[in-house]
Amino acid sequence: MSEPLPDERKVFLPVVQREGSEVAPTPTPPPPSSQRVAIDPITRIEGHLRIEVQIDNGRVVDAWSAGMMFRGIELLLPGRDPRDAWVFTQRICGV
């Protein structure tokens, strides 16, 4: 993407913390240069989701989402009695 997204709102997000960092993250105004921040985990959902955003001068210019958990249910189903399929499939999500 070469153009900024058409969103006029400024973004204030915590800076990505490295694993093992001792300092608890606190929200601070973003520096003028471009930075990429991660929000992981996204809460109040089912599943494990990581969102990363590229911020230029307080504007989101790019974003990525990643599912952080894999079970391989498609790989569990082949070879089984077809009448059982719904029992497995139902457990994809318990909500």
């Binding site: 915590p14 990505v16 929000i39 996204i42 809460t43 109040r44």
Partner: peptide, 12 residues
């Protein structure tokens, strides 16, 4: 994680 208010690094 399914019901807490904070998200991202604040959950830590």
């Amino acid at each position: 994680e399914t019901i807490m208010a904070p998200a991202g690094d604040m959950t830590e």
